[in-house]
Amino acid sequence: MNNLLIPNPKEAESIHIIREVAAQFERPVLLFSGGKDSITLVRLAQKAFYPAKIPFPLLHVDTGHNFPETIEFRDKLVEELGLELIVRNVQDSIDQGKVREERGRYSSRNSLQTTTLLDAIEEFKFDACIGGARRDEEKARAKERVFSVRDDFGQWDEKNQRPELFDMLNGKIHVGQNVRCFPISNWTELDVWEYIKTENIEIPSIYFAHEREVFFRDGMIWTANEHVYREEHEEVMVKMVRFRTVGDMTCTAAVLSEAVSLDDVVGEIRESTISERGARIDDKRSEAAMETRKKVGYF
């Protein structure tokens, strides 16, 4: 038996937030992408309710363009922890004619996810969606609340956000509204990596250096794959790379890396001079890319 627990303040705050979600809402769901942030969320949720099971399901909005390693990992994690997983596919939204597949050089299904997500929220009547977004990721995220109220259209109104005082969270909502909840708002990328290391949390293999067929475009390293549009002159080569953020293949760039262990990765992150979202192709579209997507319901 350990003598005295000295809390890790960021972890304790996150557990507090997750318990508030479970207590204040009828139908919460954890948005799970298979990335390190949502894996960290799962660990925090385990801690919040142990020895009981996590009292809400996971929802994965699958673009169909995910790295196969991520999907394998997701299924294994869900089975090991006995979690309930709901998967909804962007392909279905395309087939139903609700969204149109993008074409050409920068085409991606990333922004199409929003429609599929909003449909799933409506289908299951979810009133709270727990996400792994962090305020250090991007400028528009820096002002996000821990409990962010969205209207029927999933829209975020930056001028009409509830002030959050002390650690009191106000999740009171009207029918039709829902809340996006961000338990690791106050974590940095380095916090997440150090936590994964300290807690010895398993993560998908693509976070570690591996050989991959890639091509270079706009100073970024793209995965060479049938889902990723590539022009003929863009030459495919094999490089040692890893991913810092794991989303859809079409919007996640790799970095050259030799980091094969968590120690190596944490070391590289500490030394890193490129921000995590610097490797997100979707954010480069315009200066206000994230803010614009959030206003229309992107998480």
Binding site: M1, N2, N3, L4, L5, I6, P7, P9, E11, A12, E13, I15, H16, R19, Q46, K47, A48, Y50, P51
Partner: peptide, 13 residues
């Protein structure tokens, strides 16, 4: 979590 502890300091969840 899965640990039993003897004493907790303020700020602990």
């Amino acid at each position: 979590f899965d640990q039993e502890i003897q004493e907790a300091a303020p700020g602990s969840s």
